[in-house]
Design a protein around this nucleic acid. Structure first.
Lengths: 190, 190
DNA sequence: GTCTATATAGAGATAGAC
DNA sequence: GTCTATCTCTATATAGAC
């Protein structure tokens, strides 16, 4: 891996804390301890917590969408793409120390305490996920690899809610195995 | 409604804050403002935040299970009971100022920052929900009102994750309507 | 049970030297 | 860019009077 800049180290640390304990339990002191520089130096890179948050969200959003775009570019029918989509969420769980969830999901949970600018970005994340899911589900209907009653919209909302909920609950005593089992259950139902 | 004791008012206020903003964004000052007594008086009833948390969880757990038990006592087939089960979650959303989610779901999200005693109670809540769901799904299979592939366990985990995830995401720009639509989608798939 | 007052620690943030 | 030092505010929690 390429040597990360201090700025990136801070973003990495912040993203990890948010995923594990949430924004409101993360402090500049915590970041300072992990990154190895003083609090004031963190403030040099990100003057306020909202600044930091905006950049964490933006970066994560970008990386996540790149992954989804690569799924959409792959060969494969709708079902294969839906499986890949779920796999992206599983990787969120298995990467790192396995205690985290999706940092943006965590921020949605704490949304009432955030700057409106962050809220807007979080809603955009939701919207773009829905868009990709609609495409995948539509394709699956067309190529006959997916079968379901109801609308793409409703099933898309169901799938995204399920995956985010799973990430939350898995940390409460759950395991990657439980995550997989539940996703498999979804896949036998479509 | 019966006149609530100060103790109950504190628990009500705490539960509301947890559901809306989480434990880590809730302070004794906030509670003091809502209940109308001083911080020190809150400490008289609940010396530490963990004490308060334990009682909030215990009370909510009790009330929730009473509701589920009344569902299990009603007449009705498996499908009707599953609909009632989902309705209990919808009521969490529509009650009060509509910005909250399940306080225990929120605590699960913040689990890494909590006292181990609270964690144990949260896992118990999950376990008992799973137990009720297994019963409902089994009954639905027996009486022919529900049809699904896979196991009761996997579908139970899916349903609970979905409902908790929905409560989280609905607050991020969602509505009760979206909650209902998604639950309806679940119900046409079983 | 509720109050005032206080202790102690930590938060986010800024000024200015190097 | 990083540091020391400091400001201001808020957090949890306790002591002791009424």
């Amino acid at each position: 891996m390429s040597p990360a800049s201090t700025r990136d180290k801070i973003l990495d640390a912040a993203q990890g804390f948010i995923a594990r304990v949430g924004v409101n339990a993360m402090s500049y002191k915590h970041l300072s301890d992990v990154v190895g520089i003083r609090k004031a130096s963190i403030h040099h890179h990100f003057p306020t917590k909202t600044d930091l948050l905006l950049h964490v969200v933006q970066r994560y959003h970008g990386h996540f969408m790149l992954k989804l775009d690569s799924i959409m570019a792959d060969d494969g029918n709708g079902r294969a793409r839906l499986e890949s989509y779920c796999k992206v969420f599983e990787e969120v769980l298995t990467r790192g120390d396995c205690t985290g969830s999706c940092p943006l999901g965590m921020l949605v949970a704490e949304m009432q305490t955030l700057d409106p600018k962050v809220k807007v970005m979080l809603m955009q994340f939701y919207k773009e996920n829905q868009h990709r899911l609609h495409q995948i589900l539509e394709q699956g209907l067309q190529d006959g690899s997916l079968h379901f009653k109801g609308t793409r919209e409703a099933l898309g909302a169901l799938i995204f809610s399920l995956l985010q909920g799973l990430l939350f609950l898995t940390r409460g005593g759950g395991s990657v195995q439980m995550f997989r089992t539940t996703v498999d259950q979804l896949l036998v139902m479509v």
